[in-house]
Design a protein around this nucleic acid. Sequence first.
DNA 1: ATGGGTCCT
DNA 2: AGGACCC
Length: 408
Amino acid sequence: MGTKAFNSKVLKEESRPSIVQRMENQERQKKFEQKQKEVEKEIRQEQREALKQGIRPKFVTNKEKSLRMAEDEWALIPDQHQRTIVHIDVDCFYAQVEMVRDPSLRDKPLGIKQKNLMVTSNYVARSMGVKKSMWIKDAVKILPNLVFVDGSDLTHYRQFSTEISAVAQSFTPNVERLGLDENYVDITDIVGDYISPEYSAIEGHVFGDKEEDRKVLGDPCGCGCLQRLTAGSHLAKKIRQQILETTGITCCAGVAHNKLLAKLVSGYYKPNQQTVVFPWQAHDVMESLKQARSIPGIGSTTFKILEDLNISTVQELQNASLSTLHTRFDEETSKRLKDLSYGIDEGLVRKSGKPQSIGLEDAFKKTSKQKSWDLTSQTHQPAKGRLKQKVKERKPQRLKPKALLNLM
DNA sequence: ATGGGTCCT
DNA sequence: AGGACCC
């Protein structure tokens, strides 16, 4: 609980360098950002041109960017990859929760089932050849002594999930939940506390972890992202440690200057490990994906359209011309898709608040074309009851189940 | 796959 | 209200 371990490591006030340069003058700040955008647009345009000619666009450092902006006074603020983002991803979440609740399951191969599906399994099971999501009957074929726990009641998972987010929130309020087992944490505002010689080595893996990467790392950018992300790796470690201490749950983390890269990289070394990626490695990260579909933000519908356009790999998306994309997507989306393919993502970490809705859906077969459902009919009563129950559990006294039955 | 979720039109 | 995305 609390942040004791964290605070004890915090550096003395005067040795703490300030990271996010606060501009006193709003006007100046605005102009700077505007100029910055122009230059970035220019650069992106150039990179696309380069691609059209079959040349691989090179990473443009912030030093170079500042130089380009040098005719203006705003060029003096060199902060480019200003943010530091951590993506936290719990290892086989449901299975871990069950193992914490019943430690005797720890060393057994464990599968979590919902209906006929094994939705996840622990690492013991995985090491014995059981895949992530399989039909129960297939899983049992591979591993007859697989132990199953029913995971269709999500209440415990929700409890652990909010506890995990709460740990992250004890570091900074800027936490975005994604499903039950993932969190984005924007640590930009606190990462400065971890920039110091004490923390100058990178904690955990660097993307493309080879011995060289650790030593040869110069500072090709110069905006401070090297230091911030390095510090971020220590903060990520702290967060993971604290999650483990308070909940008994292990997780992976990815550290990057944007959400996309942080997420892509967090699962790179599993389980219970973490990975940092630097801006100049964005291309390598993206190249490590094959299908454009595996870019978060490109879902099945978008991917189908891309396939129509004969674009299915990340590289093909990188190479696609904006005008081609524009035939099927609006301008914003086209630009966004191309950005994603390069590992560019300006998306903000948005604070997750209280859940916006509590829902319950039953899938039932259509028997015939039906215009309206009879809500008073018996078939709906069970669902109605369960929903009431759910609301009761999760909203102890507030909110009456009044406008809740919004069927259709 | 299924059953929650969120955000954007 | 529907459709896109996410796990």
